[in-house]
Design a binder for these strands. Structure first.
Lengths: 344, 344
DNA sequence: TTGAAAGCGCTACCAA
DNA sequence: TTGGTAGCGCTTTCAA
C-alpha cells in the first residue's frame, strides 16, 4: 500500500494540490464546505504529511541528535530517558548515537548528522575529546547553525548551552554528610582521576575537609586512573593500612562497594565503624548490602533540562539569547551505608 | 554558514547541476578532468548531500525506528547497544523511542514514524500490547511496506522476522545446571507470571524437573505478578517454610538476590547449602555477594541479529524471502551462587 | 475561492 | 561530454 499524498486527495475531489494543502491547514482562503470534506476524507484515509518533504521545504527536521559515550551506564540511561520523553512531548524525535568515548566516532557522527538529519545536538562528550581538547567538530556544527547543548561532560571552550552538576559542591556535600554522622577520618577514592568530574569531586573533598578544619592526609586519598573494576579492591587496600579511616567518599558505586567489602573483611560493621558514600546513584546502590548512600545526579532531570533548552533555542532562532549553563543540584539519597546525622 | 549544495558547486565552475551530480558519483559520462576538479572542490568545501532531499527522492531514509518498553533495563540497554552499533556500521541511523509498556504510546510512535521517517522497525512489544493482543498498529506499518523485526517480546500473530531466545530451553538448562551440582529440591520463582517469557521459563522448569524423574512440588513454585521489588522477600518466604529447598531458579536478578538473602538469614551458606540461578545477566549479578550465576540472553547479539535481518530485508526489497525466527541461544554465566558441576 | 508555478536539493532520463 | 527537465511531496506567492 502506498501512503496517501496531497496529490491523491486532490485527484479524489478534482481540485488542485494547493487547495488540499490549504484546506488541511485550515486556511481561510478555502470555503468552509471544501475544507470540511477534504479534512474528513484525509482523516478517513489517515493522511499524514511526508516528513521528508516537510524537512526539505522547511529546513528543519524536528529531530535532535544525541551523542553519548555509552548507554550501559545507568546515569546516561536516565539522561536518555529524560531526553526522549521531553522530545516526544514536544513532537521531536531523537537519533541516539554512541561514541564509545572515541573522538573519531564523535566527529564522524556529528558530520553524518549535520546534513539535514537533525536540527541540533545534545552531547555528553567523549573521554578522548575531553582529553585532547579538539573541539573543532562541535564548532563546525555550530557554524552550520546546529545548536548544541552539552550535558554533564562538557567542553568549556565551546559556545553553547550546558547542563551540569556542581561536582565540587557535591564533593563537599558528601564530606559534610559523613562528618555530620561522626566520621573522623574520611577518605577519598577515584578510579577516574583523568576526568574532570573526578577532579572537581576531589576539589570538593578538599573544600569539605578544610571547612572542618581538618588536615588533608594524602594517605587517605586514592586518585588514579583504573579502568578494570576488578582492580578496585587492590587499589583501595592502601587506604586501610593504618586502620584509621572510618568513612569514604567514592567517585562511583563500584569503588564504594569495593571499599565496603574490604571494611567488612577487616571486621568492621557498616555503617557503625565505617561509612561510605558513592557518587553515582545507580542500580548497584539500591541492591548492595548494605544499600549504598549516594549523591544523586538526577540524570532524568538533566536530560529534560537539556532538551528544553535546545528546543527553546530551535523554536526561537531569531532571538540571540546568550548561552546559559544550568546547574542541576545534587541530592544525597540516604540508604544504609551511613549513620543518621546527628551533631557530635 | 549555509551548507554547500550541488547548485553552489555548479555555479563555482559554471557547469550544470546534473554535471556536478554525475561527477560526484563518478559517472563515466563526465570527463576525467571535470570530474577531478569537481570532486576536489567538493572535498575542500566539505560537501555532503542533503539527506532529506535524498530520502524524498529515493523513498528511503536509511534510518531504523526502534521501540522498546524501557531503557533503564540492562538487557534492553545491551540490545540497543547492539542495534546502534550494527546500524551505524551499515550507514543506518536509529531513532529510539520508549513505549513505557503502554499500548497507546506504541501506537502513536509507530504512526509518527510511519511517515517517511524510517524504513523499518525493530520492536520489543509493550507489556500492554502483549496482554491485549491488539496488533493492528504493527499490521498497518507492514501495509505501508515498513518491515518489522520483533525482538525478545514478540507478537506471534504478526507476519515479520523475529529474534528470540528459547526461554523454555533456558528454563530447563537452569534446572539441569542446579541438579548437576547436587541440588535436590529446586524451586522456581517468578514475579512476572503474566508475561510470556516467564510462562516459557516455567515450562522449561517443568521439563527440567520431569527429565530428572522428580515430581513437581507446588510448594516449591512461586509464580505471581508483583511489580514492587520491595516485596520480593515476602513473596519468597513461603518457599522456605519447610526448609527443604536447596536451589532456586529465578526469573530475574532481583528475585534471585532476595532468595539468597533469605537463605543467608536462615543460616545457609551459598552456594554450599543453597544455590541460585537468575535469568537476567545484568549489573546486579556481577556485584552481588556472592556473585550470581545467571542465564545470559546475550542482548547485544540479539540486537545485532535483529538489525542485520532488518537491513537485509531493506536492501533487498524485491526478494520475497519468507519470515524467519532466529533463536539466539542462551548461556550459563558461571559465578559464585552455584557449586561446580560434578556428577553426583 | 481556487489554481498554477516556483522552489527546497537531489537523481535520472533524454536531448544536444 | 554536458545540460535541461521532470519529479519526489510539500508550502507559499501570485494570478485568475
Amino acid at each position: 500500500m502506498k501512503k496517501t499524498t496531497l496529490k491523491d486527495i486532490a485527484k479524489q475531489f478534482n481540485v488542485s494540490i494547493s487547495t488540499v494543502s490549504k484546506a488541511l491547514s485550515d486556511s481561510e482562503e478555502i470555503s468552509e464546505a471544501t475544507r470540511k470534506k477534504i479534512k474528513e476524507y484525509a482523516k478517513e484515509v489517515n493522511y499524514r504529511p511526508n516528513l521528508n518533504a516537510l524537512s526539505l521545504k522547511n529546513k528543519r527536521t524536528k529531530t535532535i541528535g544525541i551523542l553519548v559515550p555509552d548507554m550501559l551506564n545507568y546515569f546516561l540511561a536516565q539522561v536518555l530517558k529524560g531526553i526522549e520523553k521531553t522530545a516526544i512531548e514536544n513532537a521531536y524525535k531523537v537519533v541516539i548515537c554512541i561514541t564509545n568515548d572515541s573522538h573519531n566516532k564523535e566527529k564522524e557522527i556529528i558530520e553524518m548528522l549535520s546534513n539535514g538529519s537533525v536540527d541540533g545536538f545534545i552531547i555528553s562528550i567523549a573521554e578522548e575529546t575531553e582529553l585532547n581538547k579538539d573541539f573543532s567538530h562541535f564548532n563546525s556544527a555550530l557554524a552550520f547553525n546546529l545548536p548544541i547543548v552539552m550535558l554533564d561532560r562538557v567542553a568549556n571552550g565551546v559556545n553553547c548551552d550546558k547542563v551540569i552538576t556542581n561536582n565540587r559542591e557535591a564533593g563537599k556535600l558528601a564530606v559534610e554528610r559523613l562528618a555530620n554522622s561522626g566520621c573522623k577520618n574520611i577518605a577519598f577514592a577515584s578510579a577516574i582521576s583523568h576526568l574532570k568530574v573526578s577532579q572537581d569531586l576531589l576539589k570538593g573533598y578538599y573544600d569539605g575537609i578544610n571547612n572542618l578544619n581538618r588536615t588533608i592526609n594524602n594517605n587517605q586519598i586514592v586518585n588514579i586512573q583504573e579502568n578494570h573494576y576488578s582492580g578496585y579492591e587492590n587499589m583501595l587496600l592502601p587506604l586501610f593500612n593504618d586502620n584509621t579511616i572510618d568513612g569514604i567518599v567514592a567517585t562511583n558505586e563500584g569503588v564504594a562497594l569495593a571499599a565496603m567489602k574490604i571494611a567488612h573483611k577487616k571486621g568492621k560493621t557498616i555503617p557503625d565503624d565505617f561509612s561510605a558514600i558513592g557518587f553515582t546513584n545507580g542500580i548497584l546502590a539500591r541492591h548492595s548490602n548494605p544499600k549504598l548512600t549516594t549523591v544523586s545526579q538526577h540524570g532524568e532531570i538533566m536530560g529534560t533540562a537539556a532538551t528544553k533548552m535546545l528546543i527553546e533555542r530551535l523554536e526561537n532562532p531569531d532571538e540571540e539569547t546568550e548561552f546559559k549553563t544550568k546547574v542541576i543540584k545534587t541530592d544525597i539519597v540516604e540508604r544504609n551505608s551511613t549513620r543518621p546525622i546527628k551533631v557530635y
